[in-house]
Nucleic acid binder design. Structure first.
Lengths: 348, 348
DNA sequence: ATCGTTCATTTGATCGATCTAATTTCAGAC
DNA sequence: GTCTGAAATTAGATCGATCAAATGAACGAT
């Protein structure tokens, strides 16, 4: 029956023009205080809300950010991304951005969806995760100057070049180093690292933290590194082999999945206590009382949205001076924290 | 520089009017085959994509569905909802709907966000989960005739009235019954049920499946029901008490969280094998080789989107005969399946 | 040859906001 | 008393699609 009020409705009731009402909403500083008050009263009275479709059409901007809903393979590591998505949604909501979901099976399908969303004017920018070295996706986006931010470093080739796009990442190296140093502090002297196959940027980075902690120690400690793919089962096997060493009192792992494997191995084979530290602080770690390195996804998400808004706003002001932003100003490494639980304690 | 082509661009190139191009896209059956072909060629050539903002403004329809990004409390049960969200996104994508995320701390905040989204024309409908008896949210939506569908039954009061809104749910009763019957079949004769406190619709439903299986059995079996809140720790304690009974060979639980607790209890206290069945088939169950009742969220999501699209389309055709839909046509109960793993096997 | 129908296509208005540029108001400078 | 410039406000065009209604074309029936 009576449809929603529009700018014109409010304008008439307040005795001003449409444009003034528009200004009250979008540029209050342009409106005289008395007028401002009067118009706002009418807005409140008739419960006026701007129609986003009209605004989007006129401004050619959607204030929507696309994000991929990840298919978490083993479900354990997927936890972090789900939490990240939650945090991003929350952060976006705070600055009047919306998150639009999509699914894609591979990078190619994802790019196709982007192409669609961008061409239709469905999104202003994108948040992506799991970027890797020479990722075709970041190249595609950069070439088209699409505002985007990645959770995760680009890990270019040798791992030196930080890339030229915006990203936020957690310092896995520092996290594992923190965990290893804590174990050393507790008196552990034979600490193994259970990692992923060589070549993964994330995995090698975390391993680096372990090696650095040992190298920096004034104790006589030797690195002991074993690798396996991400499955719990293989981790159990490899951990079982490690436990053959009676001196071993602690295992630092590259992920909670592997920590779960190690934990199973300890429970099944060893009658002794072995400290285990995981990575990601997933529900599994909590349930099994495993210590774990936690990624502060809330902080990561805040920075992501921050970087993204800046890019969207910059793309908005096409006529302002094209002050080129230093990529380093849009790249940040967040420090993780160690969540200590029963699994890490002094050796005997 | 050269902005995207519009309807007018295509129309001019193809030598037809805007409206014809529009029809080629939205109502191809109205266009002569020859024209259709010619226009489509131009569309492909200039890579024309309709601008959604313009379409939304004119049609007053967004083809966007709102969904809440849940804060998974214990993280284990949250898994199902995350997967559901993934499945919903996938299903929506298939029928050209989009999923818009939001977060909210409680029902009141959620309603406020809906109010905003609906007033602004940001969404056409909503998907919600975790509805409960006398949920203020379903009432709010029903009163305003907002298209929506719930994953989960309304569980009104005594659990008899199916509600008058669209919903899709998984038959937890049948799932647990399936699991219990399988244990009986395997030869178990003393089977406990570890559930949630009385009064939860979902929990009581699942318990019902356990009781029904025992009642229907021709064996001499007695129900043995224990309850605890959802935490792993408390589940471990209660399960430990249950294990004091040396006859006990199997525990059916209301959730994977409790199954994890029970599993821990068995490993710590009992030198014997006890079969455990969980619910939700979460990664934890997979990792610990626990049998579990799996909710087919893909199927649930498909039905949800199906029901939602029907409602949105119906709201679209305001002038068609107002044929009232029987609520029961928009309510469906999906059968879960039992995923058998090492944890459930014959006693001894 | 005329009429009525159906099919194909076009025209002009419209959705509800913002942009651009023009206009009005008014304080302070000369 | 006029002029200047900043502040406040307004009018008209515009974003890109769809809707509603009108027009034109084709064709068999009368």
């Amino acid at each position: 029956m009576n449809s929603r009020p529009t700018l014109a409705t409010v304008a008439e009731l307040a005795g001003v023009s449409r444009q003034t009402v528009s200004n009250v909403i979008s540029n209050p500083h342009l409106v005289a205080p008395i007028t401002l008050e009067r118009v706002r009263a009418v807005i409140a009275q008739v419960d006026y809300r701007p129609n986003t479709a009209a605004r989007r059409l006129r401004t050619q901007r959607s204030f929507v950010v696309g994000a991929r809903m990840t298919t978490d393979f083993d479900g354990i590591s997927g936890y972090v991304l789900d939490h990240f998505l939650h945090a991003v949604t929350s952060a976006a909501q705070r600055v009047d951005l919306h998150i639009l979901l999509y699914v894609a099976d591979d990078a190619e399908a994802e790019i196709q969806i982007w192409d669609q969303l961008l061409a239709e004017g469905g999104v202003d920018g994108l948040v992506l995760a799991h970027t890797h070295a020479d990722d075709p996706r970041t190249r595609w986006l950069s070439e088209r100057k699409v505002p985007f931010v990645a959770f995760g470093r680009p890990w270019n080739n040798n791992g030196t070049h930080p890339g030229d796009h915006a990203w936020v990442d957690v310092d896995g190296c520092a996290g594992v180093r923190l965990a290893t140093e804590r174990l050393l502090e507790l008196g552990h002297r034979r600490i193994a690292f259970l990692g992923w196959p060589e070549g993964s940027g994330v995995g090698d980075d975390r391993l680096g933290g372990y090696l650095a902690a040992l190298a920096a120690s004034d104790q006589d400690v030797e690195p002991l590194v074993r690798r396996c793919d991400g499955t719990v089962r293989e981790a159990t096997e490899v951990a079982t082999e490690l436990l053959a060493d009676p001196e071993l009192t602690a295992i630092v792992t590259v992920s909670d999945s592997l920590a779960l494997g190690a934990s199973t191995a300890v429970r099944e084979c060893a009658p002794r206590q072995v400290a285990i530290v995981g990575f990601d602080d997933t529900p599994v770690a909590r349930a099994l009382d495993l210590s774990s390195v936690a990624q502060p996804v809330d902080i990561v998400a805040d920075h992501c949205i921050d970087f993204l808004r800046a890019q969207i706003d910059a793309a908005n002001a096409r006529f302002s001076q094209a002050k080129p932003v230093n990529p380093a100003d849009r790249q940040i490494l967040i420090q993780p924290r160690l969540v200590e639980r029963a699994s890490s304690r002094s050796p005997n």
